[in-house]
Design a protein around this nucleic acid. Structure first.
Ligand SMILES: [Mn+2]
Ligand SMILES: [Mn+2]
Ligand SMILES: [Zn+2]
Ligand SMILES: [Zn+2]
Lengths: 145, 145
DNA sequence: CCAAAATATTGATTTTGTCAAAATTTTTAT
DNA sequence: ATAAAAATTTTGACAAAATCAATATTTTGG
């Protein structure tokens, strides 16, 4: 995958094995957690460390190359889909995350009253139960976690 | 404040000093953190513990009596304003949080594509710079954190 | 007032993530 | 291609936020 090399060059970021591994892992599995990314990268680069994953994710976020999502009470997730201000559905049971586009009608960046804030991002999380968990609940009766 | 006693009774929750203290603290200062609530409650009930604050906040959230907000990279905030699906502006610099009403036009609970999810909450965080921090930045030049 | 249930207190533990220093790799400039 | 400089990686210690668990205390309902 050469687009990552080009992208990193554009941002004057070093082109390292771990960094490329992180980007590939995220392309393959959007909304991954640090643990998940680490597992994938470790498969290719056995000597890698969790700290290197953290470092790279933070650097990539700072440069706007990836985006961080941090749902209440869960570790951060990351994705390479940036710059389109899309939003997320998250399942209260299995914590699965899926993309959903921005409303076409509603201007996300314009709250009813902005109180003088200079708003640059509208982060929207739709909380609910995913189709699969809806089924499970129906079949197994009332069951927690 | 007797409305809190009534409210707790409705939910069959014990009426304890700490619990009432938490609700009063939150009424007085919406979007407070555990630390802030603890400080306020401790002022009245010197023997209280942080764990009691955590316990109570969790219980109150479960019962829908208060609401939890958890912005990326910050401790949770709590508020007694519930049930109106309002949203929040948060300052990237000073982390101040202010309320903003739901769009009137856009139906918050209806994402463009719900992917079969049973959505019950739309959590919207508007990120930006608050008026006060805009001033500081202008006056002090480019300054970080 | 008394027993049962709920809550509070205390201290240990977990999870997620940062910090810091030395070792290695990558880049930049001869 | 090579050497110095810069960036990244590795390792281990550390920190913040929150939960868990056991015992003590308070609250409730009778
Ligand atoms: Mn996404
Ligand atoms: Mn609010
Ligand atoms: Zn699910
Ligand atoms: Zn501010």
């Amino acid at each position: 995958m050469n687009k990552h090399r080009t992208l990193l060059k554009h941002h004057k970021l070093s082109l390292t094995a771990v960094r490329l591994g992180v980007l590939e892992a995220l392309d393959a599995q959007p909304h991954s957690s640090v643990e998940e990314i680490f597992a994938v990268v470790k498969d290719k680069i056995v000597t890698t460390s969790k700290q290197a994953i953290y470092n790279n994710l933070n650097t990539l976020v700072k440069h706007g190359i990836i985006r961080e999502i941090k749902p209440k009470g869960e570790p951060s997730r990351y994705e390479t889909r940036v710059g389109d201000n899309h939003h997320h559905l998250i399942c209260r049971e299995c914590h699965m995350i899926v993309d959903t586009d921005c409303f076409s009608g509603a201007p996300c960046l314009e709250p009813m009253d902005d109180h003088g804030f200079n708003v640059d991002e509208a982060e929207i999380l739709f909380w609910g139960i995913c189709p699969s968990c809806q089924n499970n609940t129906n079949k197994e009766g009332s069951k927690d976690e």
